[in-house]
């Protein structure tokens, strides 16, 4: 499981700043688009280095040894 963190700041005038941490690639965009639907419209958006990192994928390899009996 991955832990994503959002820091949501609601300014005095209602303007919202969202900082998405821990989510990489398009997962980041999913959060920002979701919040834009709730709050209003995107005024500004910028990406930091983590956005460009590949999304973490867990790869499990299973090996099975078959033994012939007899």
């Amino acid at each position: 499981m991955a832990n994503h963190e959002l820091e949501i700041t609601i300014a005095k005038n209602g303007e919202v700043r969202v900082h998405v941490k821990g989510a990489k690639g398009k997962k980041c965009l999913e959060y920002s688009q979701w919040l834009a639907q709730i709050v209003g419209k995107v005024k500004d958006q910028h990406y930091t280095s983590e956005y460009y990192e590949p999304e973490t994928k867990v790869k499990i390899e299973l090996h099975q040894e078959l033994k012939e009996e007899g």
């Binding site: 303007e15 998405v20 989510a23 709050v39 209003g40 995107v42 958006q45």
Partner: peptide, 11 residues
Amino acid sequence: MSTVVILTPII
């Protein structure tokens, strides 16, 4: 760090 979004509210 990943992304920072500024949203303008619409009521």
